[in-house]
Design a protein around this nucleic acid. Structure first.
Lengths: 344, 344
DNA sequence: CTGAAAGCGCTTACAG
DNA sequence: CTGAAAGCGCTTACAG
């Protein structure tokens, strides 16, 4: 490998001079500059960033810790991170926790989780990344699993209880409000809610949005129209059957994710009901498949790409020693109108 | 940041000794070893990998160049890479080309593509990665866009014309053969093919598999049952309508991807046909959405995760100076039986 | 405008 | 079993 010394020798200058033309620092005569550049090109020289990093104590690379890259939200967030990282000359060191493979679906083994995270952070630390973005698989409190860490971190798609931490998420409450209101505007009054797991932040906040929409529009909340699912297709399916069996059946359902919404569609069809003319359904997440169900699902789209962008923007500022006023960023979801909702 | 000198001073040994206990090299007395370990723990010391890398000229990190992380195939491949990288203590430096954002959908601007790749490889080169995995978005020849590079590279989900390159892909021919044969075994004789773009490697090889299955089973190939789509839903939709309008309409369709298969389902429904009882349809790719169409699509699953694993395994061997016999690895696809195919 | 030299945090012959 | 010292490829005061 050719190095800065080779270049210096060949041109007949010092390595300091070569370094200066490489970085645009210091004053270098136009003539020498050209000569240096020419030899660099000639010898096809690429500076060794590892060496530079060691010296300047800054790697210009960001660490990403993704709980699971195969989960639907993660690739788009990473794509957003890439976009702004690239614009700022930052590299990306990726660690994929593969949390579902290692922990199964409940994260109750706190010790194991803590060990997993400690390793991930340590790996990034060893590699001297300038900052870290942590991407969760769903919005839960990760505080107790996070080891102490002395470089900037921003959390996305998850949260912490530490007030000094930076998080970027989206506004669940507002999104559910919009979804519910959309149904009301289409003339629905009996609007069921199929919630996710009860201990979920998402369930909780979306429930609040649902309630607010009803209240603000003078629709009375009927407890029997509220069901708790577990985010999976099956629960949407069974709960919808339950709802449809009641005498006072709903004319619309807001399902708190697309998976359960799909279960709802299935159940409705089995009952001989047409979606949307007999039953309107609105989902959440705008997962890819929601465009391919029958009927195609109206759903709330999560600003994943933007979350990645914002997280990176914030991290970049933190790395540069700034502190930002707003520590909990909440982005807005957009409604994707497809064919599972209609006027009553 | 505490460093190896701090540890050495505190214990009262040389940095050489500390380094040896850190790496398990050399002979170190049990007593000093313990003392060193203790102080390392006490001072919460993490070795600086950057410094180590500079010295040993090996970073133990792999570079991934992904043409686009948001494309359906990429996350699972990365997940597979992570799995074996982790087992071998290798880190991952990710560069996401975001090729669709930058190039649009046709990659005809060869110069731009070449520049994009040159940058990506240079970035990885600067960071001294030990080897590179290149993940394409579809299997095409990338040779002319790849800059000269002196570290091991393995290509997956794409190919090169250079015989010394290592590639890992899946067997398109065999997969299409299996799909077609499956239909034949269900009593179908009039089996249409909706192909992807004609210049595609996938289209070409899958076409061959389709032909072989017909031939081996004594079914005559009917040219009018073969249509060329462009991989998008719309083309599957229109071509299926064409097929169904013919007097001698097919009883089954093999669509060369799930998107077009979805278009086929839509078209069949519009014609008042039931899938699968009036028309069997089999797709390709096993994209997530294929489990949520109505009916759920029978399709060929691509071994993405395994491709990532194999590519990493090969790269790891190459980095360690081995050369492998087989340079073009082809993995097998698995059929996912769902509800879009039935006996005639 | 340019160069000599120290130093970033490690590893590794080499000597003892 | 342990240490002194050179060196990986850069950058950056400092001096001129």
């Amino acid at each position: 490998m050719t190095n800065i010394k080779d270049i210096a020798k060949r041109v007949g200058v010092s390595t300091a001079t070569v370094s200066h033309v490489l970085n645009g620092t210091g004053r270098v005569g136009e003539d020498t500059r050209k000569k240096v550049l020419h030899v660099i090109d000639e010898l096809n020289y690429t500076p060794n960033r590892i060496a530079k990093s060691l010296k300047v104590k800054k790697t210009s690379t960001l660490g990403i810790i993704a709980e699971d890259v195969t989960v639907f939200n993660t690739p788009s967030i990473i794509d957003g991170i890439n976009e702004v990282a690239e614009n700022n000359g930052l590299g990306i060191l990726l660690v994929n926790l593969r949390i579902f493979h290692k922990m199964g679906t409940d994260f109750s083994d706190k010790d194991k989780l803590r060990k997993l995270l400690a390793q991930a952070f340590e790996q990034l630390h060893m590699n001297q990344v300038d900052g870290i973005i942590y991407i969760g698989t769903y919005n839960r409190d990760v505080t107790e699993a996070i080891p102490p860490i002395q470089i900037p971190v921003v959390y996305t798609y998850c949260k912490t209880t530490n007030e000094s931490d930076y998080t970027v998420n989206y506004d669940d409450e507002e999104a559910a409000y919009k979804a519910t209101k959309h149904l009301i505007e289409h003339g629905h009054k009996k609007i069921a809610l199929i919630s996710g797991k009860v201990d979920s932040v998402h369930s909780h906040e979306r429930f609040n949005g649902y309630c607010r929409a009803l209240k603000e529009n003078g629709v009375t909340l009927e407890p029997c129209l509220i069901k708790n699912g577990d985010w999976e297709v099956e629960s949407g399916y069974y709960l919808t059957k339950e709802l449809l069996d009641e005498k006072n059946r709903p004319t619309a359902i807001v399902a708190l994710n697309d998976l359960m919404a799909y279960g709802s569609i299935k159940a409705a069809k089995e009952k001989g009901l047409n979606v949307p003319s007999d039953l309107s359904i609105i989902g959440f997440d705008n997962r890819e498949f929601s465009a391919y169900t029958s009927p195609e699902l109206t759903t709330m789209s999560i600003p994943l790409h933007l979350m990645g962008e914002k997280a990176t923007y914030i991290l970049h500022e933190l790395i540069n020693g700034k502190t930002l006023e707003e520590r909990e960023l909440k982005l807005y979801c957009e409604m994707i109108n497809r064919n599972s909702v209609c006027k009553i």
